[in-house]
Each structure stands twice: as C-alpha cells, then as structure tokens.
C-alpha cells in the first residue's frame, strides 16, 4: 500500500471533529448539522449528525496519518490511487466526492 492519499469513506463519518482537531497542519475542515431521527418504538427522537462538507487541503497536508489514527469509525483510510499535481493551488482543496476511496469511482 502506497501512502499517497487519504481517502474519506463518507458513510462511516459521524462528524465527530476528532480528525479536524488533531490535524497538526489544520488542513481538514468539516461542516455538519444535527437532525432528529425518530425510530419506531423509541421514546424520543435520536440526534444524528449529518455531514455537509468535508475538505482536506492537500497543499498543507503532510500525510502524517494522525487523522486516520484518531478516527474511531475508520472513516479515513490510506489510499494509493493518485499523485496530486495541479496548476491551481485552489484545486488542492478536495471535497467529499474527490476524497472517495479509489475503488468507488
């Protein structure tokens, strides 16, 4: 496995913010909101965080893997599929879709 990319498995992310806070380069940003989910038979609705946006700024990322280590739900993982070369610095800011693991797209 080449450690050349950090991928996001969106379904596993609970917007807990741990990766964002632990990142030494402050290169991850995450936006989310809370909704109430009512389950049958439950006494009161359950609070669920919904991920709105997740971005890694690869112009800053040092591939240290701290975010992968701290993620309690394995929503972040090493991936090998791409070397990121861009003509624009802004293009290095990758969102949920671009961060998808290599098998998914």
């Amino acid at each position: 496995m080449k450690h050349s990319f950090i991928a996001l498995i969106e379904d596993k992310c609970t917007s807990c913010m741990l990766c964002v806070r632990e990142c030494p380069a402050w290169c991850i940003s995450l936006d989310s909101h809370t909704i109430d989910v009512t389950e049958e038979g439950a006494r009161r609705p359950r609070k669920v965080n919904v991920l709105d946006s997740f971005e890694i700024d690869y112009s800053l990322c040092m591939y240290c893997g701290v975010c992968i280590d701290v993620c309690p739900f394995d929503a972040l993982a090493w991936d090998e599929h791409r070397a990121l070369v861009t003509t624009n610095r802004e293009d290095m800011l990758l969102g949920i879709v671009e961060l998808g693991p290599s098998g998914s797209s």
């Binding site: 913010m17 402050w26 940003s29 995450l30």
Partner: peptide
C-alpha cells in the same frame, strides 16, 4: 490569526455562529 477549523461543531459553525 488563522481560523481554526476545529472550532466548528454540528451546532457551532466555523465562524462561531451557533445553530439550535
């Protein structure tokens, strides 16, 4: 001086605005 992305939460936006 750099806004810290970790300041956000599901109920708090990155700029400090509170939701709910």
């Amino acid at each position: 001086l750099t806004p810290w992305p970790g300041g956000a939460e599901p109920q708090i936006k990155e700029d400090g605005r509170k939701v709910g």
